[in-house]
Structure formats: structure tokens, C-alpha cells
């Protein structure tokens, strides 16, 4: 697809993702081996200064006793970093969503609880507005289709990813965060077929996630995959590319980008 820069609608967003466990940033390969990669405040400021368009925090803290730590992280980051913040992980009900929004989150990302109780999508989008309800879908290829996984990729469901995406769209989700479980942490590129297939069926923005290894992967997700945003973790955390390098490259490839 050729993007005509003279007719820009919205810029494509570059989003670093911070996996947070008990208030610290971690990132693993294919969700298994976790490695401490920093303090969320420092990292958020760092990415903001580099020109990140948005930040996503995924709280992977397992024990409920440590759940509230994420509220403190969001509160602190949102006092210093003035770009949209999306927070996901462990959200069970409207109170969880309200607490996150009151702590300074602009959007929440729901995954497992949306599958267990799809009505949470309708209720939360009615209460807080569609614009702050992101539904995360973890999908894994299964011949010619994709299956949906929950619980951070550990539990297989009977849901088809494309059908589920259509359904959450109709229930009032404002955005989709599509993670390819096959590609996540592999750095071999986003699952372009998955992105394209979902894009055809929904009319809400799509954030592509899972598999970013180089600049071309991001370009492909935004152009061939028609995603509205690309999310990546490892390549940013380990300094393979800066946000600025990604943006300069995409700009040189005629992708509409917010340059700062």
C-alpha cells in the first residue's frame, strides 16, 4: 500500500511496551524467561523524550497482594510523562478500570476477563467511553486460522481470533491490541496475515504486537498489515533501535509519523 503523505489522516503510532512485575519493568522471550530491564519511571521518561507516541504497561504481577503497586506506578509516571498511557493486566471489573483511570491511565487493556465475561466490554465502554477500552487479543496460528489464548498466553480457548475481534468491536471496544503468540519475542516480524485479516473485519484502530525485530517489520505492519500503531518491547529495551531511529526510518519510507 502506498501512503500518500499529502492526504495524511492520523500519524501512525510507535508504542514501547513495558511489562511490569511488582513495580519493575521486565521482558521475556515468548513470555517465559523474564529479565529485569529497568525502572518504569526512568524508562517512561526516556521513551517520552525520544518521541514515543504512547506507552503501554502490562502488569504481569501474579499475586493479588501486589496488584495495587501498578496504581502507584501509573500515578508516578502520569505525573511526569504527558502522553497517553494504556495499562493492562489483571483487570477483573469496572472498579479495577476506575482505579486505573483515576490513577492517571488514559486507557485500559483487558484480555482474559473480556473472554470470561464479554459484557465487561459493553459495560466499561458505556461507563468510561469506548476510547479508553482496549481489548488485547493473544492469537496463535492454527493452520489457516488463529486461536485465542488467555492468561498471558498459557490457556487455549475455543475462540477464533478474527471472530473474537469482530465481536469485541461490536461490544464497544475502542481499540485492539493484537499479539501474535507465534512471533512474540522471536523478532522475526509481526504476523501480517493476522493483522490484515482482522483489519478487514473491524473499524477500530489496531495496535500490532509480537515479533518486531527490525525496522522493516514495523514498516510492513503499518503498510501491508494496515495497522494504526506498532508496539514493541525488546528492541527498545535492549537498545537495538531508539524510537527516533524507528520514526526517522518510517518517515523516509513515507509513513505519516509525528516527528519531534
Amino acid at each position: 500500500m502506498i501512503i500518500n503523505k499529502g492526504n495524511i489522516l492520523l500519524t501512525k503510532r510507535i508504542i514501547p511496551c513495558l511489562d511490569i512485575d511488582k513495580g519493575r519493568v521486565v521482558k521475556g522471550t515468548s513470555f517465559l524467561s523474564l529479565k529485569d530491564a529497568g525502572d518504569p519511571r526512568e524508562l517512561s521518561n526516556f521513551y517520552n523524550n525520544q518521541g514515543a507516541d504512547e506507552l503501554v504497561f502490562l502488569d504481569i504481577t501474579a499475586s493479588s497482594e501486589h496488584r495495587n503497586i501498578i496504581l502507584d506506578v501509573v500515578e508516578k509516571v502520569s505525573s511526569e510523562v504527558f502522553i497517553p498511557l494504556t495499562v493492562g493486566g489483571g483487570i477483573r471489573n469496572l472498579d479495577d478500570i476506575r482505579n486505573l483511570l483515576n490513577s492517571g491511565a488514559d486507557k485500559v487493556s483487558i484480555n482474559t476477563s473480556a473472554i470470561e465475561n464479554p459484557d465487561i466490554i459493553r459495560k466499561s465502554s458505556e461507563e468510561f467511553g469506548s476510547q479508553c477500552i482496549v481489548v488485547a487479543i493473544d492469537a496463535k496460528r492454527n493452520n489457516n486460522s488463529w486461536s485465542v489464548f488467555t492468561h498471558g498466553g498459557r490457556v487455549l480457548t475455543e475462540l477464533d481470533a478474527i471472530e473474537w475481534a469482530e465481536k469485541v468491536n461490536s461490544l464497544g471496544a475502542g481499540e485492539l491490541l493484537i499479539t501474535s503468540m507465534d512471533e512474540d519475542g522471536q523478532q522475526k516480524g509481526y504476523d501480517i496475515d493476522l493483522l490484515k485479516s482482522i483489519q478487514k473485519k473491524v473499524n477500530i484502530p489496531i495496535i500490532a504486537s509480537g515479533g518486531a525485530g527490525n525496522l522493516k517489520h514495523m514498516l510492513e505492519a503499518l503498510t501491508i498489515g494496515k495497522s494504526d500503531a506498532v508496539l514493541a518491547a525488546s528492541i527498545f529495551h535492549y537498545g537495538k533501535y531508539s524510537i527516533k531511529e524507528v520514526k526517522d526510518y518510517l518517515n523516509s519510507e513515507n509513513v505519516p509519523i509525528r516527528l519531534i
Partner: peptide
């Protein structure tokens, strides 16, 4: 098709 609502994102 390209005009999604809400208008959400960075615009100049």
C-alpha cells in the same frame, strides 16, 4: 473507510 470515529491519535 479511513475516517474512523472517534478521531483518536496525533494530528497536526
Amino acid at each position: 473507510e479511513d475516517i474512523k470515529i472517534p478521531h483518536m491519535g496525533w494530528n497536526n
